Amino acid sequence: DRIFMTRTEALEFLLKAHQTAVDKIGHPSHKQTPADHAAIEALDRLLLDVRARRVDQFQINASAAQIIVTD
């Protein structure tokens, strides 16, 4: 599946995904793992790359739809 978004929409989408990941590892019942921190770092890099126009398409994980940034 493909989803087309403007750059602004894609950045909002990534910010929400980032916040969800941060909230998940901050929850008291969740045991933090290196994979959790790696996922947040990957989202940080992706946010910067989309914002800087170095990336025009991405996929958060293998089961997610491919996001295509349109400007």
Score class of each variant (00 low, 15 high):
Gln32Thr: 14
Ala64Thr: 13
Ala64Gln: 11
Thr6Val: 02
Arg2His: 15
Lys24Phe: 08
Thr33Pro: 05
Ala52Leu: 14
Ile3Ala: 03
Phe13Cys: 05
Leu15Thr: 14
Leu11Lys: 01
Asp23Glu: 14
Ala65Gly: 06
Arg53Asp: 06
Ala21Gly: 02
Glu41Cys: 05
Asp23Met: 04
Leu11Thr: 03
Lys24Arg: 13
Ala39His: 11
Arg51Tyr: 07
Leu43Met: 05
Arg54Pro: 01
Ala38Asn: 07
Asn61Trp: 08
Thr6Ile: 02
Ala64Glu: 11
Ile68Ser: 04
Ile25Tyr: 06
Met5His: 01
His37Met: 13
Ala38Pro: 04
Arg2Met: 13
Ala42Trp: 13
Arg7Ser: 04
Leu11Ile: 14
Leu14Ser: 00
Asp23Tyr: 03
Val55Trp: 01
Arg45Val: 05
Val55Glu: 02
Thr6His: 03
Ala17Asp: 01
Ser63Lys: 10
Ile68Pro: 01
Ala64Pro: 06
Leu43Ile: 13
Asp23Trp: 02
Ala10Asp: 00
Arg2Leu: 14
Arg53Trp: 03
Asn61Phe: 09
Thr20Met: 15
Ala65Asp: 06
Ala10Tyr: 01
Thr70Glu: 10
His27Asn: 13
Ile25Ala: 09
Ile67Met: 03
Arg2Ala: 12
Arg51Phe: 07
Glu9Cys: 06
Arg53Phe: 05
His27Arg: 12
Val50Met: 03
Gln66Asn: 07
Ala42Arg: 13
Asp56His: 15
Ala38Ser: 09
Ala65Glu: 08
Leu15Asn: 12
Pro28Leu: 08
Asp49Ile: 03
Pro34His: 09
Ala42Asn: 09
Thr8Cys: 07
Asp44Ser: 15
Thr33Gln: 10
Thr20Val: 12
Ser63Ile: 11
Ile60Pro: 02
Ile68Arg: 03
Leu15Asp: 06
Asn61His: 14
Ile60Ala: 03
Leu47Ile: 15
Gln19Arg: 10
Arg54Thr: 08
His30Phe: 09
Glu41Ala: 14
Leu14Val: 03
Phe13Pro: 00
Val55Asn: 02
Gln66Gly: 04
Met5Asp: 00
Thr8Gln: 14
His27Phe: 09
Thr70Ile: 15
Asp56Thr: 14
His18Arg: 15
Val50Cys: 02
Leu47Ala: 04
Ala62Trp: 04
Glu12Tyr: 06
Arg2Pro: 13
Asp71Tyr: 04
Asp49Gly: 11
Phe58Trp: 02
Gln19Phe: 05
Ser63Pro: 06
Asp49Glu: 13
Thr33Cys: 06
Ile60Glu: 02
Asn61Ala: 12
Ala64Trp: 07
Ala10Arg: 00
Asp49Val: 03
Ala42Asp: 08
Gln57Asn: 11
Thr33Leu: 08
Leu11Pro: 00
Thr70Asp: 12
Asp71Asn: 06
Glu9Ile: 03
Ile25Cys: 04
Ala65Ile: 15
Phe58Glu: 00
Asp1Asn: 01
Glu12Gln: 09
Leu11Asp: 02
Asp49Arg: 03
Ile67Val: 10
Asp71Ile: 14
Leu15Val: 13
Arg53Met: 09
Ile3Trp: 06
Phe13Met: 10
Ser63Leu: 12
Val22Phe: 06
Ala39Phe: 15
Asp71Pro: 07
Ala35Lys: 09
Ala21Val: 09
Ile3Met: 09
Asp56Ala: 07
Leu11Val: 09
Ala62Arg: 07
Ala38Ile: 11
Arg54Leu: 12
Ala62Asn: 13
Gln19Glu: 07
Asp44Arg: 15
Val69Thr: 02
Ile25Gly: 05
Ala21Glu: 09
Leu47Ser: 03
Phe58Pro: 00
Ala65Met: 11
Val55Arg: 04
Arg51Asp: 05
Arg7Trp: 14
Val50Glu: 00
His30Asn: 10
Met5Trp: 01
Ile67Gly: 01
Arg45Thr: 07
His18Ile: 15
Pro34Leu: 10
Ser29Val: 09
Glu9Arg: 04
Glu41Val: 12
Thr33Arg: 07
Ala39Lys: 07
Leu11Tyr: 07
Asp1Val: 02
Phe4Gln: 06
Ala21Leu: 15
Lys16Ile: 12
Ala21His: 07
Met5Arg: 01
His30Ala: 09
Ile67Lys: 01
Asp36Arg: 03
Lys16Tyr: 07
Gln32Asp: 12
Thr8Met: 13
Thr8Lys: 14
Leu47Thr: 04
Ala62Phe: 06
Asp36Met: 08
Arg7Gly: 02
Leu46Met: 04
Ala42Phe: 14
Gln19Ser: 08
Asp49Pro: 00
Ile68Gly: 01
Glu9Trp: 01
Ala35Leu: 09
Pro28Val: 08
Ala10Pro: 00
Thr20Asn: 13
Ala35Asn: 10
Leu46Ser: 00
Pro28Cys: 06
Asn61Val: 07
Leu43Cys: 02
Glu41Ile: 12
Ile68Trp: 07
Leu48Asp: 15
Ser63His: 12
Phe4Gly: 02
Asn61Asp: 12
Thr70Asn: 08
Lys16His: 11
Asp56Arg: 09
Val50Tyr: 01
Gly26Tyr: 13
Leu15Glu: 15
Gln57Pro: 01
Thr6Trp: 02
Ala42Ile: 14
Ile60Asn: 02
Leu43Val: 03
Gln57Phe: 11
Val50Pro: 00
Thr33Ala: 08
Lys31Tyr: 06
Asp23Gly: 11
Ala52Gln: 12
Ile25Phe: 09
Leu14Asp: 00
Asn61Met: 10
Leu14Pro: 00
Val55His: 01
His30Glu: 09
Lys16Asn: 11
Ala64Cys: 07
Ile40Ser: 02
Leu47Asn: 01
Glu12Ser: 15
His27Pro: 08
Arg51Asn: 06
Ile60Gln: 02
Ile60Cys: 06
Val69Glu: 02
Arg2Val: 15
Ala21Ile: 14
Ala39Ile: 14
Glu41Asn: 07
Ile40Thr: 03
Arg53Glu: 10
Leu48His: 15
Arg2Ile: 15
Glu41Pro: 02
Phe58Thr: 00
Val69Gln: 02
Leu48Thr: 14
Gln32His: 14
His18Val: 13
Leu14Phe: 00
Gln32Met: 15
Thr20Lys: 14
Ala65Lys: 10
Ala65Ser: 12
Val50Leu: 05
Ala39Val: 13
Gln19Ala: 13
Ala35Cys: 05
Val22Lys: 11
Asp44Thr: 15
Asp1His: 02
Arg51Gly: 11
Lys24Ile: 10
Gln66His: 12
Gln57Leu: 07
Arg7Asn: 04
Asp49Ala: 08
Lys31Val: 13
Ala17Ser: 05
Met5Gln: 01
Arg54Ile: 12
Thr70Pro: 02
Asp1Arg: 00
Lys31Asp: 10
Arg7Pro: 03
Glu41Thr: 09
Ala10His: 10
Arg45Ala: 09
Arg45Gly: 05
Phe13Asn: 02
Glu9Ser: 04
Ala10Leu: 02
Arg54Lys: 12
Leu43Trp: 03
Glu12Thr: 05
Ala10Trp: 01
Lys16Thr: 08
Val22Thr: 11
His27Glu: 11
Phe4Val: 10
Arg53Pro: 01
Arg45Ile: 07
Asp44Phe: 14
Ile25Pro: 03
Glu9Gly: 04
Ile40Met: 08
Ala35Thr: 08
Ala62His: 12
Ile68Leu: 05
Thr33Tyr: 07
His30Gln: 07
Ile60Lys: 01
Ile60Leu: 11
Thr8Phe: 08
His37Gln: 13
His18Thr: 05
Ala64Asp: 13
His18Tyr: 15
Phe4Pro: 04
Leu14Glu: 00
Val22His: 07
Phe4Asp: 02
Thr6Arg: 03
Ala10Gln: 00
Asp44Met: 15
Arg45Met: 08
Gln57Tyr: 11
Ala35Phe: 09
Thr20Cys: 06
Arg45Cys: 05
Leu14Asn: 00
Asp44Gly: 14
Pro34Ile: 09
Leu46Asn: 00
Leu14Trp: 00
Pro34Ala: 12
Ile67Asp: 00
Lys31Gln: 12
Val69Trp: 02
Lys24Val: 09
Ile25Met: 12
Pro34Lys: 10
Ile3Thr: 04
Gln59Met: 08
Asp1Met: 00
Asp49Gln: 07
Ala62Asp: 15
Leu46Phe: 02
Val69Ile: 15
Gln19Asp: 05
Leu48Phe: 04
Arg7Leu: 15
Asp71Arg: 06
Gln66Pro: 06
Arg7Met: 12
Glu12Asp: 14
Arg53Ser: 11
His27Trp: 12
Glu9Asn: 04
Pro28Tyr: 01
Asp49Asn: 06
Gln32Tyr: 09
Val50Asp: 00
Ala17Gln: 10
Asn61Ile: 07
Ile40Val: 13
His30Gly: 10
Pro34Asp: 11
Ala62Leu: 11
Ala21Cys: 05
Thr8Trp: 11
Asp56Glu: 06
His18Phe: 15
Gln19Gly: 05
Glu12Arg: 08
Asp23Pro: 02
Arg53Cys: 08
Ser63Gly: 11
Ala38Gln: 12
Gly26Arg: 14
Leu15Arg: 14
Asp36Asn: 06
Asp71His: 15
Thr6Glu: 03
Thr70Ala: 06
His27Ile: 08
Gln19Ile: 07
Asp56Leu: 08
Ala38Glu: 10
His27Ala: 12
Leu48Gly: 13
Pro28Thr: 08
Leu46Ile: 05
Leu47Cys: 04
Lys24Asn: 10
Pro34Trp: 09
Ser63Asp: 12
Asp56Met: 10
Gln66Glu: 12
Phe58Cys: 01
Ala10Met: 02
Asp1Gly: 02
Ala38Lys: 09
Thr8Ser: 13
Gly26Ala: 12
Lys24Gly: 06
Val55Ile: 13
His27Asp: 14
Leu46Asp: 00
Ala35Pro: 06
Ala39Arg: 09
Gly26Asp: 10
Gln59Trp: 11
Phe58Arg: 00
Ile67Asn: 01
Ala17Phe: 07
Thr70Gln: 11
Ile40Asp: 01
Ala38Asp: 10
Arg7Gln: 06
Ala52Thr: 12
Ile67Phe: 04
Pro28Glu: 10
Ala17His: 06
Arg7Phe: 12
Ala10Thr: 02
Ala35Gln: 12
Ile3Pro: 01
Ala17Gly: 02
Val69Pro: 01
His18Gly: 03
Leu47Gln: 03
Gln66Arg: 13
Glu12His: 08
Leu43Thr: 01
Arg2Tyr: 14
Gln32Leu: 14
Ile3Tyr: 05
Asp71Thr: 07
Thr6Phe: 02
Ala62Ser: 11
Ala62Ile: 10
Ala39Asp: 11
Gly26Leu: 15
Val22Cys: 05
Arg54Phe: 05
Phe13His: 07
Ser29Cys: 07
